[in-house]
């Protein structure tokens, strides 16, 4: 039998399809298993690699055993979700001491982030990185998400998720670039000045509803009224009327009032 004839065998297609399905199923199960497990079943190598990265990049402020120093908080028990949020959004490592860590280009590759998260998670139990199914919003209620958003989030992040100023230069960042995973991780861990909303007080389904409201209604906001002027409220409307509005009418008045000889 030549290889061509094997490929041409009637059953070959079926066998390949079955094999592919099995592989996908097993692979998917493996992936979801590892993500859902709390604490995550990270390999010892990952923990070791994470420890190495931690000592190089984080220990200066967080302490050699992540116990915290004057310059940075302790990380024992903050969980993998916290590490994933802070490092994938580029907030950590901090480029310079400031009232708040700004979002910037991530400094670590996804593998390095996983290793760091594994190391920090190994120090003490904390919120795990949410799995893809945790982030599914297909069953979530959009209107309920809006209600929860206005009750819990809008007071700092503004009604349109554009962010807002807090005291002494602190701020709630805009939600326009946040991914569903970042949103859920932020709610679970309460980074920077944000309070945390553990699943005991805000169940996962409600978090999903909020995520749905942000992704479907705020990040892709329809603008039935036209230009939204940044959704900052009446201040930008006032600036508009005093510049473009009154400006246009003054020009018209000068035009009409001009002497015609």
């Amino acid at each position: 039998m030549t290889s061509t004839s094997v490929r041409r065998h009637r059953a070959t297609g079926l066998v390949v399809l079955l094999a592919a399905l099995v592989a996908t199923g097993v692979g998917y199960a493996a992936v979801t298993d590892s993500a859902q497990a709390a604490p995550p079943q990270a390999s010892e190598t990952q923990v070791q690699q994470g420890r190495q990265l931690f000592l190089e990049g984080c220990a200066t402020c967080h302490g050699l055993a992540a116990q915290g120093t004057d310059s940075g908080p302790g990380l024992i028990g903050v969980g993998a979700a916290s590490v994933d949020f802070q490092v994938t959004t580029g907030r950590m490592p901090l480029s310079a001491p400031a009232v708040q860590a700004p979002r910037k280009t991530p400094q670590y590759t996804p593998e390095q982030v996983t290793a760091l998260a594994a190391y920090v998670a190994s120090l003490g139990a904390g919120p795990a990185i949410p799995s893809d199914s945790d982030l599914s919003t297909t069953d979530a209620n959009l209107a309920e998400g809006g209600e929860l958003f206005r009750t819990n989030c809008a007071q700092c992040h503004n009604f349109a998720g554009k962010g807002g100023a807090l005291s002494d230069g602190k701020y709630a960042p805009t939600l326009m670039n946040a991914t569903p995973r970042e949103m859920v991780e932020a709610m679970l861990t309460g980074p920077q000045n944000m309070p945390n909303f553990p699943n005991a007080t805000l169940p996962l389904e409600k978090k999903q509803a909020i995520v749905k409201y942000i992704t479907d209604n705020l990040q892709n906001a329809a603008a039935p009224g036209g230009l939204a002027l940044g959704s900052y409220g009446p201040v930008t409307e006032g600036v508009f009327i005093w510049t473009a509005g009154i400006g246009a009418l003054l020009l018209a008045a000068v035009w009409i009032g001009a002497k015609v000889r």
Binding site: T151, A154, Q155, C156, N158, G233, E237, V239
Partner: peptide
Amino acid sequence: QVTAGSQPDW
């Protein structure tokens, strides 16, 4: 409830 940046008209 309240939203950040609550402002009156100018």
